[in-house]
Amino acid sequence: MNVNLKLDNWHAKAKANRWLRYFTVFNRLALAAGFLPAGIVKIMGERFASGLSVNHPMGHYLEALHLTGYYYPFIGVVQILAAILLLVPRTATLGAIIYFPVILNICVLSFAVRFDGSLLTSPLMVLANMYLLCWDYDKLKYIFLYKKTIPQSQLHVQPVLNNKFPVAFFAGVALCIAVLVLVITHVFDIMPHNNLADCELQCGNNRYPDACHVFCNDIHKRGKSLGESLNEYHKAIKSTTLHK
Rank of each mutant, 00 (worst) to 15 (best):
Met1Asn: 09
Met1Pro: 03
Asn2Asp: 13
Asn2Gln: 15
Asn4Arg: 14
Leu5Gln: 15
Leu7Val: 13
Asp8Cys: 07
Trp10Lys: 12
His11Pro: 10
His11Leu: 09
Ala12Glu: 10
Ala12Trp: 10
Ala14Thr: 06
Ala16Asn: 14
Asn17His: 13
Arg18Glu: 08
Arg18Ile: 15
Tyr22Gln: 15
Tyr22Arg: 07
Phe23Ala: 11
Phe23Ile: 15
Val25Ser: 14
Val25Glu: 10
Asn27Phe: 10
Ala30Tyr: 06
Ala30Cys: 13
Ala32Thr: 05
Phe35Gly: 06
Pro37Met: 09
Ile40Ala: 15
Lys42His: 12
Lys42Ile: 12
Phe48Gly: 08
Ala49Cys: 01
Gly51Ile: 08
Ser53Val: 03
Val54Trp: 03
Asn55Leu: 00
His60Pro: 04
His60Gln: 13
Tyr61Pro: 10
Leu62Pro: 00
Leu62Met: 11
Leu62Ser: 04
Glu63Ser: 08
Ala64Ser: 09
Leu67Met: 06
Tyr70Asp: 14
Tyr70Ala: 15
Gly76Asn: 00
Val78Ser: 02
Gln79Trp: 01
Ile80Trp: 04
Leu81Phe: 07
Leu81Glu: 03
Leu81Arg: 02
Ala82Arg: 01
Leu86Asn: 04
Leu87Asp: 08
Val88Pro: 00
Thr91Leu: 07
Thr93Val: 15
Ala96Trp: 01
Ala96Gln: 06
Ile98His: 01
Tyr99Asn: 07
Ile103Gln: 04
Leu109Cys: 12
Ser110Gly: 08
Ser110Glu: 03
Val113Thr: 01
Arg114Gln: 00
Gly117Val: 01
Thr121Gly: 09
Thr121Ile: 14
Thr121Ala: 06
Ser122His: 05
Ser122Trp: 00
Leu124Ser: 06
Ala128Met: 10
Ala128Leu: 04
Tyr131Val: 04
Leu133Gly: 01
Leu133Phe: 07
Cys134Ile: 13
Cys134Met: 15
Cys134Leu: 09
Asp136Ala: 04
Tyr137Glu: 07
Leu140Met: 08
Lys141Asn: 08
Lys141Met: 15
Tyr142Val: 07
Ile143Thr: 03
Tyr146Thr: 12
Thr149Asn: 12
Pro151Phe: 11
Pro151Ala: 10
Gln152Phe: 11
Leu155Val: 09
Leu155Gly: 03
Leu155Arg: 11
Pro159Leu: 04
Asn163Leu: 13
Lys164His: 12
Phe165Met: 10
Ala168Trp: 04
Ala168Pro: 00
Phe169Cys: 11
Phe169Tyr: 06
Phe170Gly: 10
Ala171Tyr: 03
Val173Cys: 05
Val173Tyr: 07
Cys176Gln: 05
Ile177Pro: 03
Ala178Asn: 09
Leu182Cys: 08
Val183Gly: 01
Val183Arg: 00
Val187Lys: 00
Asp189Gln: 05
Asp189His: 10
Met191Leu: 15
Pro192Gly: 01
Leu196Ile: 11
Ala197Cys: 15
Ala197Met: 14
Cys199Ile: 11
Glu200Ala: 04
Glu200His: 06
Leu201Pro: 02
Cys203Gln: 09
Gly204Val: 13
Asn206Glu: 12
Tyr208Gln: 07
Pro209Arg: 14
Asp210Ala: 14
Cys212Tyr: 03
Cys212Phe: 01
Phe215Trp: 04
Phe215Gln: 02
Asp218Cys: 02
Ile219Met: 02
His220Asn: 00
His220Met: 04
Lys221Trp: 00
Lys221Gly: 05
Lys224Tyr: 02
Gly227Trp: 04
Ser229Gln: 07
Glu232Gly: 01
Ala236Ser: 08
Lys238Leu: 14
Ser239Asp: 08
Thr240Val: 06
Leu242Arg: 12
Leu242Ser: 11
Lys244Gln: 12
